[in-house]
């Protein structure tokens, strides 16, 4: 439900046509994992993202911040083509992954999404057991074949997600029975179970209490060693805690990109400064 509402609100908050604003800061990184160039996103005729170009580096956490409706979630959903499920959505420009445009007709979304996983705003575990929540996706992809392999993968994945000790005695119970924070870590476990290379997180802590949030943030920090993580957040503290680079979006434009430290200590753009100092948001 939440997801649908979000989509709707994104569709509504579209602005009159105008020129895109230039991005301040260095969008390039060395040896990037993903490269986005001149990305525009439309819902029907209305533009939601304007000419966004940014690199996503390896083993970094990139956070995307901005006032609500700025298009950061829309942009995130473009990165693994989750926007395909919305009929009216259209994406132009280039998003390169392994040197290939993911919107190229030759690209198949199924393996793409196996490589670029996603964690959603509201925890959405499948109505299955905890074990199956983690083991299902590797099974359909053929990453595990025997029961023993699955057991091993489920255990190692849940350990990576820091959930193993809490759930090891009740793996056969439904995932929906866990607490909110546990559910979100289960969803992260579900995403990393298929060994993705990039994990997209869409405000993963917005539905959680501070303690659960802290656990997830710790987890993100650990996962950074193995994965590239892009996280959308509305909490500037969170962005400053977990990310190395930060991108600031405003009304569909990418206003400023830089190291998290720079963005939060000496922002170059007036809008960025106003936002991080809490003038609006």
């Amino acid at each position: 439900m939440q997801e649908v509402l979000k989509k709707k609100s994104a569709e509504k908050r579209i602005l009159a046509p105008r020129e895109s604003r230039k991005t301040i800061g260095n969008i390039n990184v060395q040896n990037p994992r993903m490269v986005c160039r001149n990305v525009d996103v439309y819902y029907d005729d209305k533009q939601a993202i304007r000419n966004v170009s940014i690199d996503i580096g390896r083993n970094e956490v990139l956070s995307m911040i901005g006032p609500s409706g700025c298009g950061k979630s829309t942009f995130l959903r473009c990165l693994n083509r989750m926007n395909d499920t919305i009929d009216s959505c259209r994406v132009t420009g280039e998003i390169l992954f392994d040197g290939k445009d993911i919107y190229d007709s030759s690209i198949d979304v199924v393996p793409l999404r196996a490589q670029i996983g996603m964690v959603f705003q509201k925890p959405n575990p499948f109505p299955k057991s905890i074990y199956e929540n983690v083991g299902w996706a590797p099974k359909i992809h053929g990453l595990v074949e025997s029961k023993a392999e699955t057991d091993e993968l489920v255990e190692s994945t849940l350990q990576k997600a820091g959930l193993w000790n809490e759930v090891k005695d009740r793996l056969d119970q439904p995932g929906t029975g866990l607490s909110g924070g546990q559910q979100q870590r289960l969803c992260i476990a579900r995403a990393i179970a298929v060994s993705p290379e990039v994990i997209l997180m869409d405000e993963p802590c917005s539905a959680l209490d501070p303690i659960a949030t802290a656990k997830i943030e710790d987890l993100i920090d650990e996962l950074r060693e193995q994965y590239t993580i892009v996280i959308v957040t509305h909490s500037m503290q969170q962005a400053s805690r977990v990310s190395q680079r930060t991108a600031f979006f405003h009304l569909g434009d990418l206003i400023e990109v830089g190291t998290t430290e720079n963005i939060f200590t000496k922002p170059s753009h007036q809008l960025t400064e106003d936002y991080i100092t809490g003038r609006y948001g």
Binding site: P111, Q115, S195, P196, V198, Q226
Partner: peptide, 23 residues
């Protein structure tokens, strides 16, 4: 056993190859 992409070395099979094989 698949390795994760970012740290995936040359000797090990990447998960994506297994995925693609079954596609």
């Amino acid at each position: 056993k698949p390795s994760t992409g970012a740290s995936g070395g040359s000797g090990r099979e990447r998960a994506i190859d297994i995925v693609n094989r079954r596609l």
